[in-house]
Design a protein around this nucleic acid. Structure first.
Lengths: 158, 158
DNA sequence: ACTTTATTGTTCAAGGTTGAACATTGTAAG
DNA sequence: CTTACAATGTTCAACCTTGAACAATAAAGT
């Protein structure tokens, strides 16, 4: 008679995480919409923001920070380079790596895009007290660490 | 001299949300990895889980729940139907809509996949107290509501 | 009844993402 | 030095996702 013996929705952590995932997806959609006038998509913004922060990254390092494959970066960057947003210079010591930098135009666009993103986040989280925001951020860092472990070492005991 | 006048990373809500997005992305990657043995990807699981929960949904309703386009559903479902996981029956009252149901095999696979997902979430959130999980879920629901408003009514006052 | 407007599902082209195979360059081992 | 191994970036085929255009059906307006 027990038609549904396994109902994940009864599971508190499961329910909470579903909400998290949903919120993320909607934020992504909203960001895509608001970035459209700049002819940018979230992945482009991620790249611009990271190069704004850490000038001189290699493609590999950038890919790792963004959690995407090298090939992704390798196919996206030439577009942005042609658009005059970034610059790639070969590393003098290691001829394999290309170091990435924003152009002046790229930095200007990065700033505009980041302002749009920050404004969107502010609007969406306006009903969430700062204290709770920080608490959420801290918990998420824990979760990231836990998932990091899985990535690296499958099932390392510790 | 103020080289970086606009640093989003100084912004508490921005920082917190970056962590949220990162955690989501890593969870998605981990889920993709763990679902591979079942020859399923997260979007397939989303479909199975939603039909498990709400049998008889139309494709439109399913698309809305999953926050994807109708075309997406329209191209994914035939694959799953050929695989014997779902069934599509025309609605008798409205000849436009197709009502969706899980087959026995689909339900079995849905259960296995949901158990994998629940286990992954449990593992990743094991260091996050239940109380905090619930608080996070509640805040996320607020954020979802805020983003919902933007979607619907652009800038409705109220 | 007739026309207009909306909704549902399908198709298609465009673009994004991935993982594997590859060439090049650096590093360690013998 | 020579050989084996590892890391970086590129290319390619496969797949996924999207948005627009479309045909069929329903609902609303006249």
């Amino acid at each position: 008679m027990n038609k549904k013996q396994f109902l994940p929705w009864d599971h508190p952590r499961f329910r909470s995480w579903v909400s998290v995932a949903r919120a993320c997806q909607m934020m992504q959609s909203a960001l895509t919409r608001e970035l459209a006038p700049l002819d940018l998509k979230p992945p482009h913004l991620d790249i611009l923001a990271n190069l704004y922060r850490h000038a001189g990254l290699s493609q590999q390092e950038l890919a790792r920070k963004l959690l995407v494959g090298r090939s992704n970066i390798s196919m996206t960057l030439p577009q942005m380079e042609r658009r005059g947003l970034i610059e790639r210079r070969g590393d003098s010591r290691d001829k394999r790596v290309l170091r990435l930098f924003l152009t002046a135009e790229g930095e200007a666009l990065a700033l505009r895009a980041m302002q749009i993103q920050t404004a969107l986040i502010d609007r969406s989280l306006s009903r969430t007290p700062l204290e709770d925001c920080s608490a959420i951020g801290a918990q998420m860092e824990r979760i990231i660490a836990a998932l990091q472990m899985e990535d690296d070492g499958g099932a390392e005991s510790g």
